[in-house]
Design a protein around this nucleic acid. Structure first.
Length: 727
RNA sequence: GGGCACAUAGCUCAGUGGUAGAGCGUCUCGUUUACACCGAGAAGGUCCAAGGUUCAAUCCCUUGUGUGCCCACCA
């Protein structure tokens, strides 16, 4: 046992300590010492395999680590499940870009080879974020790490699909989906981003078929004239006096010369434009729904590459933007363009590549949400799952109460391919919703039940990434882990994935395991830049936590983050890390003092307490303050308060212990010539006791330095490490 | 348009129905046998505005202003 000398060097100490922890095996609940009856289980929000540590991860994982370390020291059987997400679109995008640099195109490569490349990439870089998390000091059980495309995990995903199918929750349908022509996939509403765009509003005249009445035409306003080729109606509000008597009449669609009706629909805003709207069911969500209400034909004129198709007549194969210009020109020529106004609006863009979204009708798989959403709703309404703070419940309820069926299929290559098989001789059934000639099965079917001779072909579609992450609390677990470690206790995450992910885990747990996956959902704030902007790598506003870990140590970094994590969003203030660094130094030096003046050499840890009998006012005061501090911190951690207990502990240690008691102890220790030996001995015991207690208090927050100091206290019968000391 | 937050020291933020707090920064003093990454002390605040409830409001209520975020719509 070496006493503390010199300064604390986080860099050297941290990697050694982490190694020691890993070797101890105590991250694994099955290897924890002592009898532990109560469990405490946390599911790590899955970082993407392509991810690198950012401040959000640092906050999220530090809070989880605090909760886990605290409960471990409190004698719980603690398990923190780690994992990584295959992150369909994100990963495919990253690897595709990587290959492009080397002049390789994924379409030339082919699906199978491309997926191989992604696996190669994953095996090479997929562990980056894990290594970075280790630097932060997280105490998750790495022996249980899972990847959402692991064999067993994938099997559970396939099972879930088959289960939903057998239950009648799955159906195929043509829907206008948000299509990214660049990524070649449909995107969910949650994956869209919006961008302001300077555009124009074109006012186009649609003539009446009957040119004998006084009014010859109706003018509609549109931002997308090229979609007019697929118009199948014009809609007005039923109460709009300007158009009331025109409802039901027939117009001639310019250019295409097709007859289309005027319909009445409540969705129309009378104030906007002319109050008359062109309806293009194939290329607009709202129009699609209107089309269903009025039984309108769906005519697709733009294809999945963003080009006009054969239904667009002479514009066939033209890019949509080009067709727009040509059509506007032509309308001008035919005197059907009444006017154009400049108009700024927001367009939906792909969250990955930023390409403008093209709504196109497409055959997709849908999951019926009614019953699932109701289950998720009930779980929180009945308080079986607590959302903390509870003002986030409203957001959760709103989403679930207005939920639409979930489009779970994606047209990308990287992901869980759906267990659906088509007859090779009737491949048109892949794209024809009326032909239900497919088999849903875990195994590839032997002979085709339709043609009786072909080997069937698996659907090229893959599942939405969230379909697999929704199963995270239990997918891929071994039989015994399922029995012992499901359900869990707590989930700690940011608010942006409350619905995307948390709600889906809740109903998946009920659906597949008949038990809620966890009882607490703690939502923490978001880390913003100092001027309140979003931290984003692409905007260059992000900050790399590894920079701080490197410069000031993981403890100081964690300290700085938690110091500010009061529940509100955090405008990042670097000076908190300086405070953390200073505190680490204070802790180190105070420990040096205590060990130099009150070394408990030869004393067993169990003998320590009896030595403590407060004789002076200062003794009494510090011991009382210690108890109060501990109580207050316990209360806070139970309530998922993190910043407050750190401040409490800081104030206690720095001011009450160091500034006051340590100074007084100098006098109490130096009683002349054994005049009052008891006072001196008591003081020593108190110093050691308070130091040891403080190390325990601080350990969940700043685990490295506390562990390092603990290892240097020459007490007999110490635990193997502070991590498993009793809090 | 609807909802949820927030507005307190120079900066980032805690906090309480009754003398306003921390970190960082600033200033003064201090080489006291852990620590200058320190100690002692100081300066610095109409607690966004207006109105209301109250013996008493920074805190509770109403309205307004400003900021951030979420949801819907944007033809």
């Amino acid at each position: 046992m070496e006493l503390i000398t010199g300064a604390y060097e986080p860099k050297e100490a941290e990697s050694n300590i982490y190694e020691k922890w890993e070797q101890s095996g105590y991250f694994n609940p099955d290897k924890l010492p002592g009898e532990r009856n109560e469990k405490y289980i946390v599911y790590m929000p899955l970082p993407n395999v392509t991810g690198t540590l950012h401040m959000g991860h640092a906050l999220d994982n530090t809070l989880q680590d605090i909760v886990i370390r605290y409960h471990r020291m409190k004698g719980y059987k603690t398990l923190w499940f780690p994992g990584t997400d295959h992150a369909g679109i994100a990963t495919q995008y990253v690897v595709e870009k990587e290959l492009k640099k080397r002049g390789i195109n994924r379409f030339e490569l082919g699906r199978e080879k491309f997926i191989e490349k992604i696996w190669e990439w994953k095996n090479k870089y997929g562990n980056t974020i894990i290594e970075q998390l280790k630097k932060l000091g997280v105490s998750c059980d790495w022996s249980r790490i899972r990847f959402t495309m692991d064999e067993k995990y994938a099997k559970d995903v396939q099972n879930a699909f088959v289960h939903y199918h057998e239950k009648g929750f799955l159906y195929r349908g043509k829907r206008v989906v948000n299509w990214c022509p660049r990524c070649g996939t449909s995107l969910s509403e949650l994956e869209l981003e919006y961008k302001d765009e300077k555009s124009k509003l074109w006012y186009i005249k649609y003539n009446f078929k009957d040119q004998n009445s006084k009014i010859k035409s109706v003018t509609v306003a549109t931002t997308r004239p090229e979609t007019m080729l697929g118009d199948t109606a014009v809609a007005v509000h039923p109460k709009d006096d300007r158009y009331k008597n025109m409802i039901g009449k027939t117009l001639i669609l310019p250019i295409m010369h097709r007859e289309i009706p005027i319909v009445a629909d409540d969705a129309i805003d009378m104030e906007f434009g002319t109050g008359a709207v062109k309806v293009t069911p194939a290329h607009d969500m709202v129009d699609f729904e209107m089309g269903e209400r009025h039984k309108l034909e769906v005519i697709q004129v733009i294809d999945e590459r963003g080009k006009m198709n054969e239904n667009a007549g002479i514009y066939n194969e033209m890019k949509a933007e080009e067709a727009r210009e040509k059509i506007v020109e032509r309308l001008k020529g035919e005197k059907l363009l009444e006017k154009e106004e400049s108009y700024d609006h927001r367009v939906a863009v792909c969250y990955r590549c930023g390409h403008v979204i093209e709504p196109v009708p497409s055959l997709q798989w849908f999951l019926r949400m009614e019953e699932l959403a109701k289950n998720a709703l009930d779980a929180v309404k009945s308080k079986k799952v607590k959302i903390i703070p509870n003002n986030f419940e409203k957001k959760y309820f709103d989403w679930l109460e207005n939920i639409r069926d979930w489009t779970i299929s994606r047209q990308i290559w990287w992901g869980h391919q759906i267990p659906v098989y088509f007859c090779k001789n009737k491949l048109e059934s892949i794209s024809n919703e009326n032909k239900e000639e497919y088999v849903v099965s875990l195994e590839r079917p032997g002979t085709c039940p339709f043609c009786k001779k072909c080997e069937m072909e698996q659907s090229p579609d893959v599942l939405d990434t969230w379909f697999s992450s929704a199963l995270w609390p239990f997918a891929g677990l071994s039989e015994s882990d399922l029995k012992n470690y499901y359900p869990g206790t707590t989930l700690i995450t940011a608010r942006d994935i409350l619905n995307l992910w948390v709600a889906r885990m809740i109903y998946s747990g009920i659906e597949f395991k008949k038990e809620l996956p966890f009882t607490n959902v703690f939502i923490h704030g978001t880390i913003l830049t100092k001027d309140g902007k979003r931290m984003s790598k692409s905007l260059g506003t992000g900050i790399d936590p590894l920079k701080y870990i490197d410069q000031y140590g993981a403890d100081a970094t964690r300290f700085g983050i938690v110091w500010q994590a009061s529940g509100q969003d955090i405008r990042w203030d670097e000076t908190a890390i300086i405070a953390g660094k200073k505190f680490a130094n204070k802790l180190w030096n105070a420990s040096r003092f205590v060990l130099a003046n009150a070394s408990p050499n030869g004393i067993s840890i169990n003998q320590l307490n009896p030595h403590i009998s407060a004789s002076t006012d200062a003794d009494k005061k510090i011991l009382r303050a210690l108890e109060k501090t501990k109580e207050s911190i316990e209360r806070d951690i139970k309530n998922f308060e993190f910043s407050r207990p750190l401040h409490t502990a800081y104030d206690f240690f720095w001011h009450e212990f160091c500034d006051i008691y340590l100074e007084i102890s100098k006098k109490q220790l130096s009683v002349p010539n054994g005049k009052d030996e008891n006072l001196s001995e008591n003081t020593k015991a108190i110093l050691i006791h308070v130091l040891l207690s403080s190390l325990k208090i601080f350990h969940p927050f700043i685990p490295f330095i506390t562990e390092e100091i603990y290892s240097r206290i020459p007490l007999e019968n110490k635990k193997e490490c502070l991590m498993i000391e009793e809090w």
